[in-house]
Amino acid sequence: MLRLPTFQLHEPASLKEACALFAEHGAAAKILAGGTDLLPNLKHEIYDVDHVISLAKLPGITGFEMQGHDLVIGALTPLAQVATNPNIQKHAPALAQAASLVAGPQHRQMGTLGGNVMLDTRCQWINQSYFWREALGFCLKKDGTVCHVVEGGKKCVAAASNDTAPALMTLGASLTFVSATGTREIPIEDLWVADGINNKSARPGEILTEIRLPLRDHTHHGAYGKLRERGSIDFPLLGCAVRIDLDDADCVRDAAVSLVALQARPLLIKGVDALLQGLKLGSTELDQAIEAVAQLAHKKCKPLDNIPGDKDYRRRMVPVYVRRTLRAALDGTGPVHHI
Protein backbone atom coordinates (compact mmCIF):
# COMPACT_ATOMS: atom_id res chain seq x y z
CA MET A 1 0.00 0.00 0.00
CA LEU A 2 1.39 3.37 -1.03
CA ARG A 3 -0.06 6.39 0.78
CA LEU A 4 0.31 10.00 -0.17
CA PRO A 5 2.24 12.15 2.28
CA THR A 6 0.21 14.82 4.03
CA PHE A 7 0.00 18.19 2.30
CA GLN A 8 -2.21 21.23 2.17
CA LEU A 9 -4.50 20.99 -0.85
CA HIS A 10 -5.38 24.19 -2.69
CA GLU A 11 -8.15 24.22 -5.29
CA PRO A 12 -8.09 27.71 -6.81
CA ALA A 13 -11.09 28.77 -8.88
CA SER A 14 -9.12 31.07 -11.19
CA LEU A 15 -5.75 31.10 -12.92
CA LYS A 16 -4.88 34.33 -11.14
CA GLU A 17 -5.51 32.69 -7.78
CA ALA A 18 -3.46 29.63 -8.82
CA CYS A 19 -0.53 31.83 -9.85
CA ALA A 20 -0.70 33.77 -6.58
CA LEU A 21 -0.60 30.51 -4.60
CA PHE A 22 2.31 29.18 -6.66
CA ALA A 23 4.21 32.45 -6.19
CA GLU A 24 3.55 32.35 -2.45
CA HIS A 25 4.62 28.75 -1.85
CA GLY A 26 7.29 28.38 -4.55
CA ALA A 27 9.39 25.23 -4.32
CA ALA A 28 7.23 23.95 -1.45
CA ALA A 29 4.32 23.54 -3.87
CA LYS A 30 3.55 21.31 -6.85
CA ILE A 31 0.94 21.80 -9.55
CA LEU A 32 -1.62 18.98 -9.90
CA ALA A 33 -3.30 18.50 -13.28
CA GLY A 34 -4.24 14.92 -14.26
CA GLY A 35 -2.20 13.48 -11.39
CA THR A 36 -0.86 10.43 -13.23
CA ASP A 37 2.76 11.56 -12.81
CA LEU A 38 2.60 13.73 -9.70
CA LEU A 39 0.71 11.33 -7.44
CA PRO A 40 2.98 8.28 -7.95
CA ASN A 41 6.00 10.55 -7.44
CA LEU A 42 4.51 11.97 -4.25
CA LYS A 43 3.76 8.44 -3.05
CA HIS A 44 7.38 7.52 -3.75
CA GLU A 45 8.46 10.59 -1.73
CA ILE A 46 10.45 11.99 -4.64
CA TYR A 47 9.32 15.51 -3.75
CA ASP A 48 9.36 17.42 -0.48
CA VAL A 49 6.23 19.52 -0.80
CA ASP A 50 3.83 20.92 1.75
CA HIS A 51 1.35 22.32 -0.76
CA VAL A 52 -0.42 20.86 -3.78
CA ILE A 53 -2.21 23.30 -6.08
CA SER A 54 -4.91 21.47 -8.02
CA LEU A 55 -5.98 22.93 -11.37
CA ALA A 56 -9.14 20.78 -11.42
CA LYS A 57 -11.51 23.69 -10.85
CA LEU A 58 -9.90 26.12 -13.28
CA PRO A 59 -12.14 27.08 -16.19
CA GLY A 60 -11.01 27.73 -19.74
CA ILE A 61 -7.70 25.95 -20.18
CA THR A 62 -9.16 22.81 -21.71
CA GLY A 63 -10.03 22.20 -25.34
CA PHE A 64 -9.02 23.16 -28.86
CA GLU A 65 -9.27 26.50 -30.61
CA MET A 66 -8.25 27.80 -34.03
CA GLN A 67 -6.55 31.18 -33.72
CA GLY A 68 -5.53 32.52 -37.13
CA HIS A 69 -2.90 30.15 -38.49
CA ASP A 70 -2.45 28.40 -35.15
CA LEU A 71 -4.19 25.55 -33.40
CA VAL A 72 -4.22 26.22 -29.66
CA ILE A 73 -4.65 23.37 -27.20
CA GLY A 74 -5.49 24.08 -23.56
CA ALA A 75 -2.88 22.57 -21.26
CA LEU A 76 -5.52 20.67 -19.27
CA THR A 77 -6.92 18.89 -22.32
CA PRO A 78 -6.92 15.14 -21.62
CA LEU A 79 -4.58 13.08 -23.78
CA ALA A 80 -7.50 10.89 -24.89
CA GLN A 81 -9.08 13.97 -26.49
CA VAL A 82 -5.80 15.01 -28.13
CA ALA A 83 -5.48 11.50 -29.61
CA THR A 84 -8.97 11.50 -31.13
CA ASN A 85 -9.47 15.14 -32.13
CA PRO A 86 -10.01 15.30 -35.93
CA ASN A 87 -8.08 18.57 -36.29
CA ILE A 88 -5.07 17.17 -34.43
CA GLN A 89 -5.21 13.98 -36.48
CA LYS A 90 -5.31 16.05 -39.67
CA HIS A 91 -2.85 18.85 -38.90
CA ALA A 92 -0.56 17.14 -36.40
CA PRO A 93 -0.76 13.36 -36.88
CA ALA A 94 2.47 12.73 -34.95
CA LEU A 95 0.96 14.42 -31.88
CA ALA A 96 -2.33 12.50 -32.13
CA GLN A 97 -0.39 9.24 -32.48
CA ALA A 98 1.96 10.04 -29.60
CA ALA A 99 -0.98 10.94 -27.35
CA SER A 100 -2.72 7.69 -28.32
CA LEU A 101 0.27 5.69 -27.08
CA VAL A 102 0.85 7.40 -23.73
CA ALA A 103 0.55 4.81 -20.94
CA GLY A 104 -2.84 3.03 -20.84
CA PRO A 105 -6.47 4.01 -21.56
CA GLN A 106 -7.22 5.18 -18.00
CA HIS A 107 -4.09 7.34 -17.88
CA ARG A 108 -5.06 9.02 -21.14
CA GLN A 109 -8.50 9.88 -19.74
CA MET A 110 -6.87 11.51 -16.70
CA GLY A 111 -3.50 12.74 -17.95
CA THR A 112 -3.33 16.07 -19.75
CA LEU A 113 -1.26 17.31 -22.67
CA GLY A 114 0.25 20.01 -20.43
CA GLY A 115 1.05 17.39 -17.82
CA ASN A 116 2.80 15.22 -20.38
CA VAL A 117 4.91 18.18 -21.54
CA MET A 118 5.81 18.93 -17.91
CA LEU A 119 6.37 15.24 -17.02
CA ASP A 120 9.26 14.74 -14.65
CA THR A 121 12.28 12.81 -15.88
CA ARG A 122 12.41 9.12 -15.09
CA CYS A 123 15.13 6.69 -14.06
CA GLN A 124 14.99 3.12 -12.84
CA TRP A 125 16.88 4.21 -9.74
CA ILE A 126 14.49 7.02 -8.74
CA ASN A 127 10.98 5.86 -9.68
CA GLN A 128 10.87 3.48 -6.75
CA SER A 129 9.46 3.59 -3.23
CA TYR A 130 11.36 5.44 -0.50
CA PHE A 131 12.00 2.07 1.18
CA TRP A 132 13.60 0.70 -1.99
CA ARG A 133 15.68 3.81 -2.62
CA GLU A 134 16.86 3.97 0.96
CA ALA A 135 17.90 0.31 0.88
CA LEU A 136 19.97 0.83 -2.27
CA GLY A 137 21.36 4.20 -1.32
CA PHE A 138 19.89 7.44 -2.59
CA CYS A 139 20.96 9.13 -5.82
CA LEU A 140 21.65 12.59 -7.22
CA LYS A 141 18.03 13.28 -8.13
CA LYS A 142 16.80 13.04 -4.55
CA ASP A 143 18.43 12.69 -1.16
CA GLY A 144 21.78 11.30 -2.39
CA THR A 145 25.20 12.28 -3.76
CA VAL A 146 25.93 9.52 -6.26
CA CYS A 147 24.61 8.48 -9.64
CA HIS A 148 23.78 4.79 -10.02
CA VAL A 149 23.72 5.07 -13.84
CA VAL A 150 27.06 6.78 -14.54
CA GLU A 151 29.79 5.75 -12.12
CA GLY A 152 31.29 8.89 -10.64
CA GLY A 153 28.69 10.98 -12.49
CA LYS A 154 28.03 14.43 -11.07
CA LYS A 155 25.04 15.26 -13.23
CA CYS A 156 21.67 13.50 -13.08
CA VAL A 157 20.89 11.63 -16.31
CA ALA A 158 17.26 10.67 -15.64
CA ALA A 159 15.47 10.47 -18.99
CA ALA A 160 12.81 12.66 -20.52
CA SER A 161 10.01 10.14 -21.08
CA ASN A 162 7.15 12.24 -22.44
CA ASP A 163 5.76 10.79 -25.69
CA THR A 164 4.24 14.06 -26.84
CA ALA A 165 7.43 16.11 -26.40
CA PRO A 166 9.25 14.94 -29.56
CA ALA A 167 6.04 15.25 -31.60
CA LEU A 168 5.56 18.84 -30.41
CA MET A 169 9.22 19.59 -31.20
CA THR A 170 8.95 18.40 -34.79
CA LEU A 171 5.76 20.45 -35.15
CA GLY A 172 7.41 23.68 -33.96
CA ALA A 173 5.04 24.10 -31.01
CA SER A 174 5.25 27.00 -28.61
CA LEU A 175 4.21 27.04 -24.98
CA THR A 176 2.46 29.74 -22.97
CA PHE A 177 3.34 30.04 -19.31
CA VAL A 178 1.43 32.29 -16.94
CA SER A 179 2.71 33.46 -13.57
CA ALA A 180 1.86 36.13 -11.02
CA THR A 181 4.18 38.49 -12.89
CA GLY A 182 2.89 37.97 -16.42
CA THR A 183 2.70 35.74 -19.50
CA ARG A 184 5.60 34.25 -21.42
CA GLU A 185 5.56 32.31 -24.69
CA ILE A 186 8.54 30.16 -25.64
CA PRO A 187 9.34 27.69 -28.43
CA ILE A 188 9.19 24.19 -26.96
CA GLU A 189 12.81 23.66 -28.01
CA ASP A 190 13.78 26.29 -25.43
CA LEU A 191 11.98 24.49 -22.61
CA TRP A 192 14.47 21.69 -22.23
CA VAL A 193 17.61 21.66 -20.12
CA ALA A 194 20.11 18.78 -20.07
CA ASP A 195 19.67 18.13 -16.36
CA GLY A 196 17.77 15.10 -15.09
CA ILE A 197 16.96 16.74 -11.74
CA ASN A 198 14.89 19.39 -13.50
CA ASN A 199 14.95 19.26 -17.29
CA LYS A 200 12.79 22.34 -17.88
CA SER A 201 13.53 26.04 -18.01
CA ALA A 202 10.09 27.02 -16.69
CA ARG A 203 10.60 29.70 -14.07
CA PRO A 204 9.44 29.34 -10.47
CA GLY A 205 5.74 30.12 -10.21
CA GLU A 206 4.99 29.59 -13.91
CA ILE A 207 2.00 27.46 -14.95
CA LEU A 208 1.74 26.03 -18.48
CA THR A 209 -1.62 27.08 -19.93
CA GLU A 210 -1.47 26.64 -23.71
CA ILE A 211 0.29 24.60 -26.37
CA ARG A 212 0.25 26.38 -29.73
CA LEU A 213 0.82 24.59 -33.05
CA PRO A 214 1.25 26.28 -36.43
CA LEU A 215 -1.40 24.85 -38.77
CA ARG A 216 -0.05 22.73 -41.59
CA ASP A 217 -1.68 21.92 -44.92
CA HIS A 218 -2.21 18.69 -46.85
CA THR A 219 1.48 18.46 -47.74
CA HIS A 220 2.34 17.75 -44.11
CA HIS A 221 3.12 14.16 -43.10
CA GLY A 222 3.92 13.06 -39.59
CA ALA A 223 4.12 9.96 -37.45
CA TYR A 224 5.21 8.71 -34.04
CA GLY A 225 6.96 5.47 -33.19
CA LYS A 226 7.18 4.02 -29.71
CA LEU A 227 9.28 1.16 -28.41
CA ARG A 228 8.16 -0.34 -25.10
CA GLU A 229 8.11 -3.75 -23.48
CA ARG A 230 4.33 -4.17 -23.42
CA GLY A 231 1.67 -2.81 -25.72
CA SER A 232 0.23 -0.54 -23.04
CA ILE A 233 0.89 1.25 -19.74
CA ASP A 234 4.68 1.41 -20.17
CA PHE A 235 6.69 4.56 -20.60
CA PRO A 236 8.76 4.62 -23.79
CA LEU A 237 12.05 2.76 -24.08
CA LEU A 238 12.41 4.95 -27.15
CA GLY A 239 10.07 7.47 -28.75
CA CYS A 240 10.53 8.84 -32.26
CA ALA A 241 8.52 11.63 -33.91
CA VAL A 242 8.97 12.70 -37.50
CA ARG A 243 7.66 15.44 -39.76
CA ILE A 244 7.98 15.50 -43.54
CA ASP A 245 6.48 18.37 -45.54
CA LEU A 246 6.27 17.94 -49.31
CA ASP A 247 5.98 20.57 -52.05
CA ASP A 248 3.49 20.52 -54.92
CA ALA A 249 5.82 18.28 -56.95
CA ASP A 250 5.89 15.70 -54.12
CA CYS A 251 9.46 16.58 -53.21
CA VAL A 252 10.54 16.99 -49.59
CA ARG A 253 10.39 20.67 -48.61
CA ASP A 254 11.27 20.28 -44.95
CA ALA A 255 11.71 17.50 -42.42
CA ALA A 256 12.48 16.93 -38.75
CA VAL A 257 13.16 13.95 -36.47
CA SER A 258 13.06 14.07 -32.67
CA LEU A 259 13.64 11.31 -30.12
CA VAL A 260 12.88 10.83 -26.44
CA ALA A 261 13.75 8.39 -23.62
CA LEU A 262 17.47 8.70 -24.22
CA GLN A 263 18.79 11.43 -21.95
CA ALA A 264 17.48 14.25 -19.77
CA ARG A 265 16.04 16.23 -22.68
CA PRO A 266 14.26 15.19 -25.87
CA LEU A 267 16.65 15.31 -28.80
CA LEU A 268 15.99 17.05 -32.12
CA ILE A 269 18.36 15.51 -34.66
CA LYS A 270 20.19 18.27 -36.52
CA GLY A 271 20.84 17.90 -40.25
CA VAL A 272 17.78 15.80 -41.14
CA ASP A 273 16.27 18.47 -43.38
CA ALA A 274 19.50 18.82 -45.38
CA LEU A 275 19.57 15.06 -46.06
CA LEU A 276 15.96 14.85 -47.25
CA GLN A 277 15.22 18.22 -48.88
CA GLY A 278 14.40 18.17 -52.59
CA LEU A 279 14.11 14.40 -52.90
CA LYS A 280 11.05 13.04 -54.66
CA LEU A 281 8.53 10.77 -53.03
CA GLY A 282 9.01 7.18 -54.21
CA SER A 283 12.53 7.78 -55.54
CA THR A 284 15.55 5.59 -54.78
CA GLU A 285 17.35 8.74 -53.62
CA LEU A 286 14.72 9.32 -50.94
CA ASP A 287 14.99 5.70 -49.77
CA GLN A 288 18.77 6.11 -49.48
CA ALA A 289 18.37 9.42 -47.67
CA ILE A 290 15.96 7.85 -45.16
CA GLU A 291 18.63 5.26 -44.43
CA ALA A 292 21.19 8.06 -44.03
CA VAL A 293 18.86 9.81 -41.52
CA ALA A 294 18.51 6.54 -39.61
CA GLN A 295 22.29 6.18 -39.42
CA LEU A 296 22.69 9.85 -38.42
CA ALA A 297 20.24 9.31 -35.54
CA HIS A 298 22.13 6.17 -34.51
CA LYS A 299 25.34 8.19 -34.38
CA LYS A 300 23.78 10.97 -32.31
CA CYS A 301 21.78 8.85 -29.84
CA LYS A 302 23.58 7.11 -27.01
CA PRO A 303 21.04 5.68 -24.55
CA LEU A 304 22.16 5.14 -20.95
CA ASP A 305 21.12 2.58 -18.36
CA ASN A 306 18.75 5.16 -16.91
CA ILE A 307 15.47 3.48 -17.81
CA PRO A 308 14.54 -0.20 -18.13
CA GLY A 309 15.71 -1.98 -21.26
CA ASP A 310 19.25 -2.84 -22.25
CA LYS A 311 21.01 0.29 -23.50
CA ASP A 312 22.72 -1.49 -26.40
CA TYR A 313 19.39 -2.91 -27.56
CA ARG A 314 17.76 0.51 -27.27
CA ARG A 315 20.57 2.04 -29.34
CA ARG A 316 20.19 -0.62 -32.04
CA MET A 317 16.50 0.21 -32.16
CA VAL A 318 17.17 3.92 -32.87
CA PRO A 319 17.78 3.54 -36.64
CA VAL A 320 15.04 0.91 -36.87
CA TYR A 321 12.44 3.22 -35.37
CA VAL A 322 13.65 6.31 -37.26
CA ARG A 323 13.46 4.42 -40.56
CA ARG A 324 10.06 2.86 -39.84
CA THR A 325 8.56 6.09 -38.54
CA LEU A 326 9.74 8.10 -41.56
CA ARG A 327 8.20 5.52 -43.87
CA ALA A 328 4.99 5.42 -41.81
CA ALA A 329 4.71 9.21 -42.09
CA LEU A 330 4.99 9.07 -45.88
CA ASP A 331 2.65 6.08 -46.18
CA GLY A 332 0.15 7.42 -43.62
CA THR A 333 0.38 4.18 -41.64
CA GLY A 334 1.53 5.48 -38.24
CA PRO A 335 1.89 5.03 -35.38
CA VAL A 336 4.81 2.61 -35.35
CA HIS A 337 4.19 0.28 -32.45
CA HIS A 338 4.86 -3.37 -32.00
CA ILE A 339 1.18 -4.14 -31.31
Binding site: G35, Q106, Q109, M110
Partner: peptide, 10 residues
Protein backbone atom coordinates in the same frame (compact mmCIF):
# COMPACT_ATOMS: atom_id res chain seq x y z
CA UNK B 1 -12.54 4.55 -16.92
CA UNK B 2 -10.08 6.25 -14.59
CA UNK B 3 -7.70 5.17 -11.83
CA UNK B 4 -9.03 5.94 -8.36
CA UNK B 5 -5.56 5.45 -6.82
CA UNK B 6 -4.28 8.48 -8.78
CA UNK B 7 -7.24 10.77 -8.13
CA UNK B 8 -7.70 12.77 -4.97
CA UNK B 9 -11.05 12.28 -3.29
CA UNK B 10 -11.64 15.97 -3.64
Amino acid sequence: PQLSCLMLGS
